[in-house]
């Protein structure tokens, strides 16, 4: 292996870790919603898209082709992405949090798609199908590969911080209460818990992480257009990651994200080497393979690779 090849592999690894980290943030968000609280959010793509566009609009240089840009620091862009996602998730929560799990799924699919279509069609704000380009990348002044490594470290640090925060919340009465709502709403109500309020809280917390992931993704690929917010690569993949990794287990959520992204990315490398006429079909075959993999994992490990564990009196799980 010559040094150019090794360098290529190293960059590939950096991109795997960066993308895996961004997915891990979404997975942790979905874990709060589904894993802890039992909220079936099937509109991940919508919150992801909102975060991505907000951060893009806030941080790009002024442009005639879309709203703003406001040329703000990237950190403010990401905070803005989280705040706007929080407000929108709260409004969505007020509207449909009373729906039972499968109905909530249907409602959130619809709402997620509405957001995506609005972002696609409000050309004055988002430049429509052509998307927003020239989104700044953090550490842009550093030379390659240091800018990419820097961004990877930033993403991994964000994952680590949120992992610890969410794990702490899970083990606190807050997490106990959320899981109580998941397990038996009626009983939680009889125990004086304001179920609606806490369901909205969990929905907002999870969606904020999805918005943050969207913002990070926009900065990473430096461009955001409707194609980057397809439900297949956001909603579907994140769900597979969480279920395979272990719903209700934060370590499982993070593991699932890195593992599945690795497989997803690697399968693209493989199918890319097929002859041209097969390659078109192979792109769809990837989706089938991911589904099959999920089946195998769930047959073997019913609760995911790292299933949920409740705290016990001897030790804390």
């Amino acid at each position: 292996m010559d040094s150019a090849q090794a360098y290529g592999y190293m960059l590939y690894f950096v991109s795997l870790m960066t993308m895996g980290g961004i997915y891990a943030i979404m997975c942790l968000g979905l874990n709060i919603q589904w894993g802890f609280t039992g909220l079936f959010n099937a509109g991940i793509a919508g919150f992801f898209a909102i975060g991505a566009y907000v951060s893009a609009i806030l941080t790009t240089a002024e442009s005639a082709s879309h709203l703003g840009g406001y040329d703000l620091p990237i950190a403010l862009g990401l905070v803005g992405a989280m705040v706007v996602t929080a407000v929108i998730a709260w409004l969505v929560g007020l509207l449909c949090i009373r729906l039972r799990s499968d109905y909530l799924a249907i409602a959130t699919i619809g709402i997620g798609e509405i957001f995506r279509l609005i972002l696609k069609n409000e050309i004055w704000a988002t430049n429509g199908a052509r998307g927003i380009a020239k989104i700044p990348l953090p550490f842009e002044t550093l030379s390659e590969p240091w800018n990419k490594i820097g961004f990877m470290l930033l993403v991994l640090a964000v994952v680590a911080v949120f992992y610890f925060v969410i794990e702490r919340a899970r083990l606190a009465p807050w997490g106990r209460l959320m899981t109580g709502i998941r397990e038996n709403e009626q009983s939680a109500r009889a125990a004086g818990k304001n179920v609606e309020r806490f369901r909205i809280e969990a929905f907002v917390c999870g969606s904020v992480l999805m918005g943050l992931a969207g913002g990070l993704m926009a900065h990473y690929i430096k461009f955001i257009g409707p194609g980057a917010t397809e439900p297949l690569t956001t909603t579907f993949l994140v769900w597979v990651m969480l279920i395979a990794g272990g719903s209700g287990n934060n370590r499982g959520a993070v593991l699932g994200a890195f593992l599945l992204w690795g497989i997803w990315s690697f399968s693209e490398v493989l199918t890319g080497r097929l002859p041209a006429e097969l390659a078109v079909k192979a792109a769809y075959f990837r989706i089938f393979l991911i589904g099959l993999l999920l089946q195998v994992v769930l047959q073997r490990y019913a609760g995911g690779i790292l299933p949920e564990r409740r705290p016990t009196t001897n030790k804390v799980a």
Binding site: T179, G180, E183, N184, R310, P311
Partner: peptide, 10 residues
């Protein structure tokens, strides 16, 4: 109406 997947103590 127990919280099925939680421990008795919880």
């Amino acid at each position: 109406q127990e919280f099925g997947a939680m421990s008795v103590l919880e």
